[in-house]
Simulated assay, not measured.
Amino acid sequence: MSAPYSPSIRRRRLSAELRKLRSQSELTLQEASKQAGIGKSNLSKIEQAESKTVPTKTLDMLLDTYKVTDTQTRAALHQLAKDAKVRGWWAQYKDLMPEMLADFEVEACAFRTFQAQVVPGLLQTPDYAGAIFRANKVREDSEIERRIDARLKRQDVLNQVHPPTYEAVIEEGALRRVVGSAAIMHEQLLHLDHMAVRHNVDLYVLPFNAGAHPATEGSFVLLDFPDPRDSTIAYFETPVSSLYLEEDEQIRRCNTMFGSTQACSLNPVQSLALIRHICSELEE
């Protein structure tokens, strides 16, 4: 069975390759579009990965314009275009979750996340996730069950044979806030205990006494990818929208924010001890 892949990553990679080929051909966007016989705005959208598909005919016209004659190179770019059209499992939940996040997660080789209010989604138990979703009183039970199902499917990324590394900085308040019930929270903390001993998972608890820290403006996730052609993505979620950042300066600032917040946190051994202490308090 082939490993899942991200159509969005394939689309971004194809766009980057086409931009590089145009640059190597020393053609401006206008010159390339004119020679290839496609609109300048269409080519711009293709190069910015704003077009969901690149038709075979259009791709061939661009490769001809850039004088790409190597059959293997052409075949590889056509495969990228083909892969970019495929819909992942997450498409069936697009009305309930940030579709592009799951899309990017399947190919990430490293996750770095800061969570202030709740346990990170990829580390949540079904009952904990359900309690989070039920906090929104307007949701029907059927919708909540679909949301839980989608969250559990997303967590499969950490259960691969060669899983990505996962570093999570979690506010102490997220661990002490009793979500659902004491029993649900106790189970959630036990699950964090089990996840923390995995070789690819490192948990850092940001204690109350750390005071103000660099990430006080909110939670976020950084995703790194194994192919150097795929730049790091920073993901921020708000109640009404999702924001993805990938410009070099934006990523540099996010990397600094995560690293500085991580430095304010307890180390993994200390963090696990605190998680177990909070868990024991719930038992009492």
Results as ranks from 00 to 15, higher is better:
Leu206Gly: 04
Arg198Lys: 09
Asn209Leu: 10
Glu187Gly: 10
Ala183Phe: 11
Leu190Asn: 10
Met185Gly: 06
Asp193Trp: 02
His194Ala: 06
Pro207Met: 11
Ala182Gly: 06
Val179Ala: 04
Tyr204Arg: 04
Val197Gln: 07
Glu187Asp: 15
Tyr204Gln: 08
Val197Thr: 15
Leu206His: 06
Leu189Asp: 00
Gln188Pro: 15
Ser181His: 00
Leu203Cys: 08
Leu203Ile: 14
Ser181Ala: 12
Leu190Arg: 13
Met185Trp: 06
Gln188Tyr: 08
Tyr204Asp: 03
Gln188Leu: 13
Pro207Phe: 14
Tyr204His: 14
Phe208Ser: 12
Gly180Asp: 11
Val179Gly: 12
Met195Val: 01
Val201Met: 14
Phe208Asn: 08
Asn209Glu: 07
Gly180Cys: 12
Asn209Thr: 15
Arg198Cys: 02
Leu203Gln: 14
Val179Arg: 09
Gln188Trp: 13
His186Ala: 01
Leu192Ile: 06
His199Trp: 14
Gln188Asn: 09
Ala182Lys: 14
Ala183Gly: 15
Ala183Pro: 01
Tyr204Thr: 02
Val201Cys: 00
Pro207Cys: 15
His186Glu: 08
Ser181Asn: 04
Leu203Val: 07
Asn209Pro: 02
Ala196Tyr: 06
Tyr204Phe: 15
His186Ser: 13
Leu190Lys: 08
Asn200Pro: 03
Asn200Ile: 05
Leu192Tyr: 07
Met195Glu: 09
Gly180Met: 04
Asp202Met: 11
Phe208Tyr: 15
Pro207Ser: 13
His194Asn: 00
Ser181Pro: 07
Asn209Asp: 15
Asn209Met: 10
Phe208His: 14
Phe208Gly: 09
Val179Tyr: 09
Val179Gln: 08
Phe208Trp: 12
Ala196Val: 02
Gln188Val: 03
Met185Pro: 02
Leu189Phe: 00
Ile184Ser: 03
Asp202Tyr: 13
Ala182Pro: 05
His199Arg: 09
Val197Arg: 12
Leu206Asn: 02
Ile184Tyr: 05
His194Gly: 00
Glu187Val: 04
Ile184Val: 13
Val201Trp: 03
Asn200Val: 06
Val197Leu: 12
Val179Met: 14
Asn200Trp: 07
Tyr204Asn: 01
Glu187Trp: 02
Ala182Leu: 09
Asn200Thr: 10
Arg198Asn: 13
Glu187Asn: 10
Asp202Arg: 14
Val197Glu: 07
Met185Glu: 04
His194Cys: 00
Pro207Gly: 13
Val205Asn: 04
His186Val: 01
Ala183Val: 10
Asn209His: 15
His199Phe: 08
Pro207Gln: 11
